[in-house]
Design a protein around this nucleic acid. Structure first.
Length: 204
DNA sequence: CGAATGATATACT
DNA sequence: GTATATCATTCGA
């Protein structure tokens, strides 16, 4: 599995890019599931207006983000969706990476069962809420370590070419001013298993 | 395109 | 301590 030094780097965007192609494994409910990470989004804490930690807002909720790199930050959004984030950087710096999409790697039947799907389709692991649900990740796992806990990230030797990585600004960050142009989102272009919810802005 | 859904943050008594 | 607005989304019409 990835060493803690992988997460402790101070460039959350670089870590975010490096997470592509890594395998996210969970041992939950006595069953093991895993997927290849195909889409991530960096949240540069204090700098990012979309982050819960923007403006250095430290609360009980965001506490895991202030922990050391290699910590899981899971949070319930819209009352239904569990969003899984990887905390990076040293303690006290609330950087995190949201895993937005993945490709099934192992434990497919379990993932299908959790998602209530008869067979795999693109939507199985497309979107942060779907990813967490398929892997069985819930908010009870927030603050747990990625270095030996029920959630782990491993390097299975999958090589990702830089040319296959699409980096772009996140959607809906017009208000972020100079931060709007920052490539916070990364995904594997050549992969069919990326999130389809890329068109957040519906200005037609 | 619009509703669902519940914990958290913030403000107020 | 109680109340209301907010939300890094998803699914169904």
């Amino acid at each position: 599995m990835l060493p803690q030094s992988f997460y402790l780097r101070d460039d959350v965007v670089a870590v975010s890019r490096d997470l592509l192609g890594k395998v996210l494994c969970t041992d939950i409910d006595g069953r093991r599931t895993s997927m290849v990470i195909t889409e991530t989004e960096a949240y540069a804490g204090v700098t990012d207006k979309a982050s819960h930690a923007y403006g250095d807002r430290r609360t009980r909720r965001t506490e895991p983000m202030y922990g050391p790199g290699g910590t899981a930050y899971v949070y319930l959004c819209y009352g239904i969706h569990h969003l899984f984030n990887v905390v990076t950087n040293a303690s006290g710096i609330p950087h995190a990476i949201l895993v937005r999409a993945g490709e099934p790697y192992s434990g497919l039947p379990t993932m299908l069962e959790r998602r209530g799907k008869p067979r795999a389709d693109r939507s199985l692991l497309a979107g942060p809420g779907s990813v967490a649900r398929a892997l069985g990740i819930t908010t009870s796992l927030t603050g747990s370590s990625l270095l030996g806990g029920p959630i782990r990230i491993e390097d299975h030797g999958l090589r990702v070419e830089a040319a296959c990585i699409s980096a772009g600004p996140r959607v809906g960050v017009d208000y972020a001013g100079e931060d709007a142009g920052r490539p916070y989102r990364f995904r594997l272009e050549s992969d069919a298993w990326v999130s389809s919810a890329l068109s957040t802005d519906s200005s037609s």
